[in-house]
Design a protein around this nucleic acid. Structure first.
Lengths: 194, 194
DNA sequence: GTCTATATTGGGATAGAC
DNA sequence: GTCTATCCCAATATAGAC
């Protein structure tokens, strides 16, 4: 492969990723159905019609955004892996959620709102979000297993559900403090399971 | 008012309510953005163009659907009021949720999916859903108060959040058993608070 | 009051110039 | 590889016949 084609390739990858990254943000803020390709193109500083050079359809761009969001989540999980105990790791997760409470009050949980909205569509994009959600769920389950809990799966489902639910209420009532209060309650709950 | 105008009035009310009722169902199944006036008109067996005789805009029809859904919830709450103890009433609520698990796996919680979707819109419809959600929350809070809990509000938020979250997961993974398992766990939790 | 035909708009997608 | 102009369709909303 020549140097020239490498440069053009890296240019293409650059714009592709800029579009996918912008899509993650805009889809979270506006939702899938309200977001036009023009909105994403503008946020990524790419001309509208040009989007189709990188993605054949809007669905493909959304799928790229879901993948990008999944990778963000993965790197967040990797950062928490470095902590010493499973309790510390789970509580770091809680702190992350609480730290995002203002954004959540405005737009809800990025993964949850995406899952809820994509479920209503015929295309298979809802499976892609389910995969992202499933990976977080599996990680939480492993933390409860490391705490010696035989009911690790049920507890993991309960914790993620608590987060998804309080995200929805925080968003519905536009009150970040709901997240903070529930986060503290969940912290005490995790302590009580040890 | 003459008999004739009474008849025509009742006819109008009939179609209006048929449209609002059909909208509740279709909006739950398809979501707000994916649902066209034609979809609702078909479900209500009313010609498309005729919808505008009863509702000036799509938003007004959605608002009527939210109100109708709120009244359904109210009558459900009234039915539970007849039970003897607050614990029994809360567990009846849980049983209702578990009984709806197949529908929830397909389409999510009607109130929650509506709240999540309407939040992304500029119109004020999200406030109408927040009101419905708030009424359920207040009722649950009163049950915890009747159980003598000083932290009744926090517990009510936690219970409704748990339901909203498990509804989202049940829907995302299309697994009704998630709702059943979490419902049993919440039942044990309520018992432990008495 | 009821319904049909149609105007209007907006957004996804394509053709093709450069 | 980049961008503009435009096609096309779907859905809200309206005009007006009956």
């Amino acid at each position: 492969m020549s140097i020239v084609s490498q440069v053009t390739d890296s240019t293409r990858v650059g714009k592709r990723e800029r579009l996918a990254g912008a899509a993650v943000r805009v889809l979270h803020e506006q939702g899938v159905e309200k977001t036009t390709l023009a909105d994403i193109a503008r946020a990524a500083d790419v001309p509208v019609g040009n989007v189709y050079y990188y993605f054949k359809t809007k669905d493909q761009l959304i799928e790229a955004a879901i993948d990008a969001h999944g990778r963000q989540l993965e790197s967040m999980i990797e950062a928490m892996e470095r902590l010493g105990t499973p309790q510390e790791r789970l509580k770091a997760l809680l702190q992350g959620w609480i730290g995002q409470r203002d954004l959540t009050a405005k737009y809800g949980c990025p993964t949850g709102t995406l899952a809820s909205e994509l479920d209503k569509r015929d295309d298979g994009l809802d499976r892609a979000v389910a995969k992202v959600m499933g990976e977080l769920l599996d990680w939480v389950e492993r933390q409860f297993q490391a705490m010696g809990r035989a009911d690790a799966r049920e507890l993991a489902v309960a914790l993620i559900a608590a987060y998804q639910g309080i995200s929805l209420l925080t968003n519905t009532f536009r009150d970040p403090e709901l997240m903070a209060t529930e986060g503290r309650r969940l912290g005490r709950w995790i302590d009580s399971l040890a």
